[in-house]
């Protein structure tokens, strides 16, 4: 038979593994101390004490929700920040909108980068076409019949500038969004 206290703490510790070791150890020690004190004070069996603490994964996520946003804002790790924002999207319209637009800009960045890279490889399929029946700034599956390609190889610097612009826009959005959400979650506690 396994020890329920050890099992609870092991699950909690595993769920908190993204935290620095020192902080994680401190949380585990505090929860262990709480469980032992509660049992001694109330005389209740361990199962009741663990029940009132709640599911260890939920307890861990209460520690982590806050932490993840904080870290990402402080380190400005955009990937992490975007993920943290998207995770809140189900609960917050602001987060959903911010996440959507930030993701949009990051995808634009990828598309522009792909254009700059592919132009020298498949020059006839990458370009800016303008004509009576066509407008495309794109990588196409086959060269269009109508319209005129306007940029030629000048599309490479243009795509690079647009790509960098999209990246900066996406980054600005995740930063602003992260700060905003952080303030909101702190108010709600």
């Amino acid at each position: 038979m396994t020890n329920p206290l050890a099992a609870y703490l092991a699950t909690l510790e595993r769920a908190l593994r993204s935290l620095p070791a020192e902080e994680r150890a401190s949380i585990i020690a505090e929860i262990r101390s709480h469980i032992e004190d509660s049992m001694a004070a109330s005389g209740k069996p361990i199962e009741d004490v663990l029940d009132s603490l709640g599911d260890p994964l939920e307890l861990a996520s209460a520690y982590l929700d806050q932490r993840k946003l904080e870290d990402a804002v402080v380190r400005s790790a955009h990937g992490t920040l975007l993920i943290a924002i998207l995770e809140q999207a189900g609960r917050s319209l602001v987060a959903a909108l911010l996440g959507f637009f930030a993701l949009f800009f990051y995808l634009c960045m990828v598309a522009f980068a792909a254009m700059a890279v592919l132009k020298p490889i498949i020059p006839q399929l990458v370009g800016l076409w303008w004509g009576p029946h066509i407008f495309a700034f794109a990588i196409l599956e086959k060269a269009p019949t109508g319209g005129q390609e306007l940029l030629g190889y000048a599309i490479i610097p243009v795509a690079i500038v647009l790509g960098v612009g999209s990246f900066l826009a996406g980054r600005a959005l995740t930063r602003v969004g992260g700060r905003l959400l952080l303030r909101k979650t702190q108010v709600l506690g």
Partner: peptide, 28 residues
Amino acid sequence: CYGLQILEQANAAGDIVSDGALYPLLNR
């Protein structure tokens, strides 16, 4: 005071703070 003392005082007159909510709150 420590966590359990805070819980005892907080909930002396009715449920206000749950065990599972207190510790992440203290951490924050």
